[in-house]
Computed example of a mutant assay.
Amino acid sequence: MSLLVCGALHHDVIVQAPRLPVADETLMGSAVSYAFGGKGGNQAVMAARMGARVEMAGAVGTDAAGDLLLAELAAAGVGASRVWRIDGASGMSVAILQADGEYGAVVVSGVNAAVDAARIDLPEDCRFLLLQNELPEQVNLLLARAAHARGIEVILNAAPARPAAGELLSLLSLLVVNRGEAAALVGDRLPAESVTALAALGPARAILTRGADGIAIWDGTAASLAAAVPVKAVSAHGAGDAFIGALAAGLMRGESLEEAAHFAQAAAALFVSTPPEGRSAIRRPQAERFLAGRAKVGLSAPERRAGEARR
């Protein structure tokens, strides 16, 4: 069985600086690095590293960045037969990473905006389709319709935040958002109330990620909270994509939503506490050992509460 990820592929430029600049300010940074990116690409790579068989659908340009993006997919074991080369510039982002691990970023879509859903065939053995909001809404809707008609479960990471079509939400097996994205969809609420309101929009299940404050889950019947795995973060850049890729891999293994989410929390915690240059070496066995180590100090069991969150 395979996971199809359809989403953006970006060449990331990451600049280290003491803080984000304000308007009209030129701020001196301390370092620059380059990385594979795009929410779709990042989630596909993480899912593959966590043991899932992954196919990627998307587009890269005919520039040198496109070569690098395809090479990264191949190195991670992600199938790229549905990634087209289109004349023009590959997508890119510029992220400013602060000393405390927080960051801000600007994304330029490039040829990602030209992805054509009509050209994308769903694999015969596809079990899950994973989407994000970096591609046009119509692309997501057309693919979700096709997947739903075949009984393929559809996961949407509604990031970055934008208004969501009611039909798309009704086709989802799972909606995953962070606090800002949840507020854009249902307003600012307590976590359990927020994830319940998200489910009321149409998806069968929902997860609200809250960074160091953990996650809230709607499993189709009740809301629950799970505390975060405490680590010292080196950088929070890419944490959400690491969580979602690991979550999809857990679901592909047949785990329950809560089990897969708990594994994904551990994988994301390992990711953010690992220096960026070492993250490409993270695989499922390392994440499982990390999770087992947390269990030994009493940190593995989700704190389950139905109803109102107190935080």
Rank of each mutant, 00 (worst) to 15 (best):
S2K: 14
S2F: 00
L4M: 09
L9C: 07
H10L: 13
V15F: 00
R19L: 04
L20Y: 09
V22I: 06
A23M: 10
D24K: 12
T26V: 13
M28P: 10
G29W: 09
S30W: 08
S33P: 05
A35G: 12
F36P: 07
Q43G: 05
A48W: 07
R49E: 05
A52W: 01
A52M: 05
R53A: 15
G61Q: 02
T62N: 14
D63L: 04
D67W: 06
L70F: 03
A74L: 04
G79H: 04
A80G: 07
R85K: 15
R85F: 08
D87G: 15
G88N: 07
S93G: 15
L97C: 06
D100N: 14
G101T: 07
E102S: 15
N112W: 08
D121K: 11
E124N: 15
C126N: 09
F128V: 03
L129M: 07
Q132K: 05
P136M: 02
N140R: 06
N140I: 01
N140Y: 06
L142T: 14
R150Y: 05
V154D: 01
L169C: 03
L171T: 09
L171R: 08
L175D: 01
N178G: 06
G180H: 14
A182K: 01
A184G: 09
V186W: 02
R189P: 05
P191T: 04
S194H: 03
V195M: 06
V195I: 10
A206E: 03
A212S: 15
G214K: 04
A216M: 09
D219T: 09
P230Y: 10
V234R: 13
A236V: 15
G238D: 02
G238I: 06
A242Q: 05
I244G: 01
R253F: 00
G254Y: 08
L257G: 02
E259S: 14
A260Y: 09
A261S: 14
A264P: 02
Q265P: 09
F271Y: 14
V272Q: 02
S273N: 10
S273T: 15
T274W: 07
G278W: 13
A281Q: 13
R284T: 10
R284H: 09
Q286H: 11
A287K: 08
F290R: 02
A292Y: 03
A295G: 13
K296N: 00
K296V: 14
L299A: 00
P302G: 10
E303H: 14
A306G: 13
G307T: 04
G307R: 11
R310D: 11
